[in-house]
């Protein structure tokens, strides 16, 4: 079995101890996903696995066998044009050093999907169905798994709001 990353197939590492993050960075030349804490506490390594946001540092690569991984390298269009969410991060100063940004963007894409299918968050008032309102508070809570040491969180929330609002108007 192989692991599909951004549409390209990669072999499953022989050593099953290799994390998905190490497989991407050290063996596949995909250094966009970042290693922060390596223990689940920062979100820098966030990727999409079959569309769901997960932490690649706590995922064994072998657990992704036969599944589809999307990393930050797979977010922009093939011709190199930025994804609108990437552009929104630039527009709103959603980063400073940029280290957390690939994780933030992958996380936000997963988060918007969760939001669309109606998943509640800790700050959602109505748990039993009924869509939460897309607000600053909701985004902050839903993005709390991605830390930014540069403190760009306000810009990050603004960028996600802009992108989501544009999407809603389509």
């Amino acid at each position: 079995m192989r692991i599909t990353v951004n549409g390209t197939d990669y072999p499953v590492p022989d050593d099953v101890r290799v994390s998905l993050l190490d497989m991407l960075r050290e063996r596949s030349g995909l250094t966009g996903s970042k290693l922060g804490c390596n223990q689940g506490a920062c979100g820098a390594c966030t990727v999409l696995l079959d569309g769901e946001r997960v932490l690649s540092c706590l995922t064994l690569a072998v657990q992704a066998a036969g599944r589809e991984v999307r990393t930050i390298e797979g977010v922009a269009a093939a011709e190199g044009e930025l994804h609108p969410l990437q552009q929104a991060f630039i527009d709103h100063d959603g980063f400073q050093c940029g280290y957390c940004t690939p994780g933030q963007i992958c996380s936000a894409l997963g988060m918007l999907e969760e939001f669309r299918r109606g998943d509640p968050s800790h700050v959602t008032a109505d748990l039993a169905g009924g869509q939460a309102r897309f607000s600053h508070e909701e985004i902050r809570e839903r993005m709390s798994g991605n830390l930014c040491r540069c403190g760009a969180h306000n810009g990050i929330v603004a960028a996600i709001l802009q992108f989501a609002d544009a999407g809603a108007g389509e």
């Binding site: 966030t46 946001r53 997960v54 932490l55 706590l58 996380s107 969760e114 748990l127 798994g145």
Partner: peptide, 18 residues
């Protein structure tokens, strides 16, 4: 509802997905 709220207060969305 207390079970949903307890789960949603734990860890992060990425960790809860896993």
């Amino acid at each position: 509802p207390m079970l949903s709220r307890a789960l949603l207060s734990g860890a992060s969305a990425q960790i809860r997905n896993m």
